[in-house]
């Protein structure tokens, strides 16, 4: 249902052109959960924002196609995009505190999205539309309350008029999920939805998202830096590094038998709760600065322990190593 082909996003800054997303290919089937894993600056959030065409200035999409149900989103007009945003494709952002508007009651913000997308149709069209306004408003209110109940906000009638600061972080995130669900989207983009939350609350939110996926059949793209969360929650995982996709495939393959040295390193460097304690493996070096990254060769070259001389030069495609499993590494050429 979603296919991204050779997506490129660049930022033109004083320090030169930064390739935030450098040729990403993705496909997502209906009802599946795809995890995009990477560190800050790896381009995972930019990929998400490009789908909704919300890449902030001075960034722009310079190349590629984003096909959503067969239609290229990059060719849509601004007003067509406004229709799609929130209705067909909804997004949940990382920090719930900054996503909600602090000066409007939470319930009203859920209702706003119902109103904008005309979910409850006015009784009369055109100039007489105001006649059924009171009734329409009531129906929207009821629908918003229903949504709040569905995402697990207790006493929804009372909480409808609460302001965001009266909600805890987990409750705010639930309210945002309610907004995202208000138009029953086909695709849900979740940008680190649990990073700002505690573990027990994270478990609640992941549980809620999984229910939504199972009950409504909503596809989800889940961006996270936490491999363990991705391993538990997603059907497929794509690992990103410095604007490129280095490995993608079904969860069991990527987590169980990682191929790319970066994925291997990441998995090894996570402390595990096992009886034997060993010294942690640490990937050497630092996260690369995209502005000063060499345009040629593998971006992971400097930190890679398995690197060979050719890695500096070769431009690699994603190589299919087994059914549905892709790696961008010279060893599998």
């Amino acid at each position: 249902m979603l296919e991204i082909r050779n997506l490129k996003v660049v930022f033109e800054t004083d320090r030169g052109v930064v390739k935030a997303v450098n040729g990403i290919d993705l496909t997502l089937e209906r009802g599946k959960i795809l995890g995009l894993v990477g560190e800050s600056g790896s381009g995972k959030s930019m990929t998400l924002l490009s789908i909704l065409r919300l890449v902030p200035y001075p960034g722009k999409i310079v190349e590629g196609e984003i096909l959503f149900e067969g239609e290229d989103l990059l060719k849509k007009s601004a007003s067509q995009m406004r229709e799609i945003r929130g209705k067909d494709i909804a997004m949940i952002f990382q920090d719930p505190m900054t996503t909600l508007n602090p000066v409007f009651p939470v319930g009203e913000q859920i209702r706003e999205s119902l109103r904008v997308h005309n979910i409850i149709k006015p009784e009369k069209e055109g100039i007489l539309g105001f006649l059924g306004e009171r009734d329409r408003r009531k129906k929207e209110y009821e629908k918003a309350v229903e949504l709040m109940e569905k995402v697990g906000i207790s006493y929804p009638e009372k909480r409808y008029f609460s302001y965001p600061h009266q909600f805890s972080g987990g409750m705010q995130q639930r309210a945002i999920i309610a907004i995202a669900l208000s138009c029953n989207p086909k695709l849900l983009l979740a940008d680190e939805p649990t990073t700002a939350l505690d573990v027990t609350i994270q478990a609640q939110i992941l549980d809620l998202l999984r229910q939504i996926n199972e009950v409504n059949g909503t596809s989800i793209i889940f961006v996270t830096h936490d491999l363990a969360v991705a391993a538990e929650f997603c059907d497929e995982i794509a690992v990103m590094y410095a604007g490129q996709m280095v490995e993608k495939g079904p969860v069991d393959k990527v987590i169980g038998e990682p191929k790319h040295p970066y994925t291997k390193g990441l998995l090894k460097s996570i402390p595990k709760i096992t009886r034997k304690k060993e010294k942690l493996y640490a990937i050497p070096g630092n996260v690369p600065d995209l502005a000063s990254l060499s345009p040629k060769g593998c971006p992971f070259y400097e930190r890679c322990e398995e690197a060979v001389e050719e890695c500096k030069e070769v431009e690699l495609p994603l190589i299919e190593v087994s059914d549905g499993e892709f790696v961008r590494c010279i060893k599998y050429l």
Binding site: D226, P271, Y281, A282, I283, P284
Partner: peptide
């Protein structure tokens, strides 16, 4: 801190 640096 970024995941790949945490172990360091």
């Amino acid at each position: 801190i970024d995941v790949s640096i945490q172990a360091q």
